[in-house]
Amino acid sequence: MTDTFTALSDPTRRKLLDRLSEAGGLTLGELGEGLPMTRQAVAKHLAVLEAAELVASHRDGRCKRHYLNPMPLAKLARRWLGRFETVPLGALAGYEGPAAGPRVEAPAA
């Protein structure tokens, strides 16, 4: 799971995941289109995503196509966010954290 957090910590890698989410089966060149970095830099970011199993690759002749693997993200969401699904939203709406300060009431009309 640490690999997943590491991979998601970089905005460029999140951008690559967004692109794969919109259209899977992209080549390295297609993934890097319009990004202000070299092809080698995109390949390094892609290697981190593959190591975290967030991206799966498949050879198509001479091309290597990349696809989003949503399973690690689903496991992450289930583990870290799932516990909050049962919390009533009304309980969260009245939450006042330490930085919230005193509550100011609106004047009566």
Rank of each mutant, 00 (worst) to 15 (best):
Glu96Gln: 13
Gly34Met: 06
Thr12Met: 09
Leu8Gly: 07
Ala52Ser: 10
Lys15Asn: 10
Trp80Thr: 01
Thr86Trp: 14
Ala51Gly: 12
Gly25Leu: 03
Trp80Ser: 06
Ala74Gly: 04
Asn69Cys: 09
Asp10Gly: 00
His58Pro: 04
Ala99Met: 09
Gly32Arg: 05
Asp60Glu: 12
Arg65His: 08
Tyr67Asp: 02
Gly32Asp: 12
Asp60Ile: 06
Leu73Pro: 11
Glu50Gln: 12
Asp18Pro: 01
Pro88Ile: 06
Glu105Lys: 09
His58Arg: 15
Arg39Asn: 06
Ala93Phe: 01
Met1Ser: 06
Ala23Cys: 05
Ala109Asp: 12
Leu28Asn: 13
Leu31Thr: 07
Gly32Asn: 05
Leu16Thr: 09
Ala43Lys: 10
Arg62Asn: 03
Leu73Ser: 03
Ser21Cys: 15
Ala74Asn: 08
Ala43Phe: 14
Gly32Lys: 06
Pro88Trp: 02
Lys75Asp: 09
His45Tyr: 08
Leu68Cys: 02
Pro72Thr: 03
Ala108Tyr: 05
Leu16Tyr: 07
Ala100Ser: 14
Ala47Thr: 12
Tyr95Met: 14
Leu46Ile: 06
Glu22Tyr: 15
Gln40Glu: 15
Ala99Ser: 11
Gly34Glu: 04
Arg19Ala: 05
Ala99Lys: 04
Gly61Leu: 06
Thr4Tyr: 07
Glu85Val: 00
Thr27Ala: 01
Thr4Gly: 01
Glu33Tyr: 11
Ala91Glu: 13
Phe84Gly: 08
Arg14Leu: 13
Thr6Leu: 08
Asp18Arg: 15
Lys44Ala: 12
Pro102Glu: 11
Pro36Met: 00
Leu68Glu: 11
Lys64Leu: 13
Leu73Lys: 10
Leu16Ile: 13
Leu46Pro: 03
Lys44His: 14
Ala93Glu: 09
Glu53His: 15
Gly94Val: 14
Pro72Asp: 00
Gly90Ile: 00
Pro88Tyr: 02
Glu85Gly: 06
Arg39Gln: 14
Tyr95Glu: 06
Ala52Gln: 10
Ala23Asn: 02
Leu73Phe: 03
Leu46Tyr: 04
His45Pro: 12
Glu105Ile: 04
Asp10Phe: 00
His58Ile: 08
Thr38Gln: 09
Thr12Asn: 10
Ala23Gln: 09
Gly97Glu: 07
Asp60Thr: 13
Pro36Phe: 02
Arg78Ser: 15
Glu50Ala: 13
Leu28Phe: 06
Asp60Val: 15
Gly82Thr: 07
Ala108Arg: 10
Ala7Tyr: 13
Phe84Val: 08
Gly97Asn: 08
Ala77Val: 08
Leu92Arg: 08
Gly32Val: 02
Cys63Lys: 13
Leu54Ser: 04
Pro98Ile: 07
Leu54Lys: 03
Ala23Gly: 01
Val104Gly: 05
Lys64Asp: 09
Pro107Ile: 03
Arg79Leu: 00
Ala77Lys: 00
Ala77Phe: 05
Ala51Asn: 05
Leu92Met: 04
Asp18His: 09
Val42Asn: 06
Asp18Ser: 14
Gln40Arg: 12
Arg14His: 05
Arg62Tyr: 08
Ser21His: 14
Pro70Tyr: 01
Asp60Gln: 11
Gly82Ser: 07
Arg83Gln: 14
Gly29Leu: 08
Ala109Glu: 04
Ala7Thr: 08
Tyr95Leu: 14
Leu54Gly: 05
Trp80Arg: 10
Val48Asn: 00
Asp10Thr: 08
Gly94Phe: 06
Met1Ile: 03
